Simulated assay, not measured.
Amino acid sequence: MLKTSHKKELNNVQEELKKKFDEGVDELVVWNGKLVAQAQKEHDEQLEALENEIRGLRGDKKAKGKQIAAQVKVLELQREMYTDEKNQKLEEQKQHYINKIEKMYEDFNKELKMKNFQHERSKILDYAKQLEKNEEMMQKVKQKYRDEAEEKQAKFEHKNMMLELKMLQLLLENKQQEDLEKDAMLLIEWENRCRFFEQIQKERNQEKVPHFWNLNEEPDLCKVIIHMVVPGESTIGSAETAKIQLGGHGIVGNHALVENDGKNVYIQPLADNIQILVNGKVVSGKQKLQDNDRIYFGPNHLYVFNKPQDGRKKPKQPMITFKAAWTEVTSNKGNHFGNKAGCILLSAL
């Protein structure tokens, strides 16, 4: 469809051409009328002159009859010829005007067709421009949807990647957990093996190296803790530097000193405010230890000293029990510290 402006312009052109055509036709009609009127006037004048001349000749009595008749006949022929000539001229003028009107009408149609063609061409060009605009808009819309699709695809891929990453993290955590469990089981197994070999080594060392083993009111818990007395000096206490580690109430950092010279083992306290008992008696200085001596280091530490070299030389002795050893500790009436601890422990026995 043409736009409103094109329609309006075309209507104006058509009206203008029609107006010019009508004006041309009217002008030709008026001109034709004038020519016809003038020709008719001249014809009438000449006809009237001939008729007057004929009447004059007929009224002239002096003229001879034959001559007059011949002249009248000639004048009549001239009048008829003049009339025919005038009619022919009028027909020619009429045909000329008709041809001119037809040419004007043809020119009018040509100009009108040209205007229509120009407007159709303008319409096509406008339609092509509109198509270009629509194509640009369509490209923009396509690009917009393409960008949105790519963004959504990127988000979807990112989401899938995050899910895969979480799955990998979960698998890794499960794998790490499984590995940790396996490592823990292997570590426990290794520790058990180490304890087993340590126990075997301790049992072997007990047959050669002097050592302390613990006493406990529960028989099954005796000989669980073993401290080897290696050659040289060994500090006993709660300090990190002590070779034999003891802790708890009544134990200080440097509690006692044990000396192994290769033949004999000696013990002595390292502080004045502590009491160490051997077989229920207070150790005031450096004292030599014998096989199966009961050593009291504090309220929670009661040990038996074992010297394998001497034990093999002596006859077999009865088993030392916690109750018997504790009775030795509490039987020393002068040992105030022992009496306190004895009251506590004997109440539990």
Rank of each mutant, 00 (worst) to 15 (best):
K3Y: 05
S5A: 11
L10M: 06
E16V: 09
K18L: 10
K18I: 08
E27A: 02
W31Q: 08
W31G: 04
K41N: 09
E42T: 14
E51Y: 11
R58E: 07
Q71F: 04
V72L: 07
V72M: 02
K73T: 12
V74H: 09
L75V: 00
E80M: 06
K94N: 00
Y97A: 01
Y105I: 01
K110N: 14
K115L: 04
Y127F: 10
A128K: 12
L131Q: 13
Q139V: 09
K144F: 14
E148K: 15
A154V: 09
K159N: 07
E164R: 15
L171D: 15
L171G: 14
D183P: 00
E191S: 10
R193V: 15
E198V: 09
E207Y: 04
V209Q: 10
W213L: 11
N214M: 03
L215C: 03
P219E: 09
H227F: 12
M228P: 13
G232C: 10
S238W: 00
I244W: 05
I244M: 05
H249T: 07
N254L: 07
L257P: 00
V258L: 12
D261V: 03
N273L: 10
L277S: 05
V282F: 10
V283E: 04
D293Y: 07
I295N: 07
P299T: 06
Q309H: 05
D310T: 08
M319E: 13
F322N: 00
K323C: 10
V329R: 05
N332M: 10
N332C: 10
N335G: 15
N339L: 15
C343N: 12
I344E: 13
L345H: 12
